[in-house]
Nucleic acid binder design. Structure first.
Lengths: 210, 210
DNA sequence: TTACTTATGTATCAGATGGTACATAAACTA
DNA sequence: TAGTTTATGTACCATCTGATACATAAGTAA
């Protein structure tokens, strides 16, 4: 089949062509995530990013596209890594346990001394310039998606009788999300784990049947 | 007394010297507040500000100093105007009524269609560039001051027996502030009044004896 | 080898940012 | 009148922003 052998470029397993990349792309993305987390989307300049990533501008653009694309990939990495506790929490057997783990996880992550304080999704949610409006919308959409996942979990809990039949899943989810966002603002403002833990105990007192 | 009449310039009441200012300084400040509220400190460029205020750059600098000083005056105006509900709420007779009015006031203000959505203190809290670090600290300090005022109010409530003797004023205040910040994030993300009202009803269920 | 493909480093771009110099306009004082 | 003081408008500055052009380096494929 001359058509195949000449027209298609059969990529031979892992051996890629051209000069090999001189940096680890995943580690670079982690560094970028760290910078975005600390400074927000607009606060992180390309100079900040390239310095932290240990690469030059053209390498960044070749590997990630542009600043927006890099940020979106950092969002993905955030969701799969540091913020994975959200999806883990949804697997808890009871709605009450779900909420406990969501709030506890939020406080633990946002006040972890190894990370920048606060939450990437909140930190970058309020960024302002019109130029970065697509980013704000993207982050808002992801927050809404997270809230929707919590809402669906509560709907299941209501259906199973784990929550009262007259409970409103949307209201419950919005309340939990609101507290989580508030915790992010507190943490970004310097609140410590010891200060925020009692706050989530308070928040849990609002829970139906507790 | 030649010393007085020659050395000191006796300012004759309201008649100021020099060319009179061609714009209303309070109205200009209101316009600036509006821009900061919508875009945050860093998101509001001087061009945005001067256009909204209807003046040129040099007039802005002559009247307000610089961007930082203008923002601080906008913060003052915010506290005395739109955010005055906080101090009003603290005058309510019971701690429960204080919290109800704080949360209700937050939702009403942050979802008022006449204002930008969200809260100026939260919107500008997470701004990012190192250059505007003083601003972030200033806003954080003002948020802490607000939280402290709420805490003091709850301490009085405990002393008067309005709250249980074993209640922790600091924890209660932190919880209320956290919910308020969360509401601001929600509102900035487009949440409506109808969506947030049930959330504050949820939040109130956590209150001691309710 | 020679061609081809991809990555790197330097040097730079146009545009936006916060902030000003300077000449002029409009009020008051003498 | 002239002199002083303050405000305005134009035009501009140095700096930073995100993003690239271009030559070169370092690999694979034939």
């Amino acid at each position: 089949m001359t058509l195949v052998s000449s027209g298609m470029k059969v990529r031979k397993s892992a051996a890629r062509m051209g000069r090999p990349r001189a940096f680890d792309i995943d580690e670079a993305l982690d560094r970028a995530l760290h910078v975005f987390w600390q400074k927000g989307y607009e606060g992180a300049s390309l100079s900040d990013l390239t310095e932290a990533m240990g690469i030059n501008r053209p390498s960044l653009y070749a590997a990630f596209g542009n600043k927006e694309a890099l940020f979106c990939k950092a969002l993905d990495r955030y969701a799969e890594g540091p913020a994975a506790y959200v999806h883990e929490a949804l697997k808890e057997p009871t709605a009450r346990a779900v909420v406990e783990r969501l709030l506890q996880g939020a406080v633990d992550l946002q006040t972890d001394p190894r990370n920048p304080p606060g939450c990437l999704m909140v930190q970058s949610a309020l960024s302002c310039r019109e130029a970065s409006d697509p980013i704000r919308k993207e982050v808002a959409a992801r927050r809404k998606a997270g809230e929707a996942a919590i809402r669906q979990r509560f709907k299941r809990a209501i259906a199973k009788g784990d929550l009262p039949a007259d409970a409103n899943a949307a209201d419950l989810a919005r309340y939990v999300a609101t507290v989580m966002y508030g915790l992010a603002v507190q943490a970004a403002g310097g609140a410590s784990r010891a200060e925020l833990r009692p706050a989530i105990q308070m928040a849990l007192r609002a829970w139906p049947g507790a």
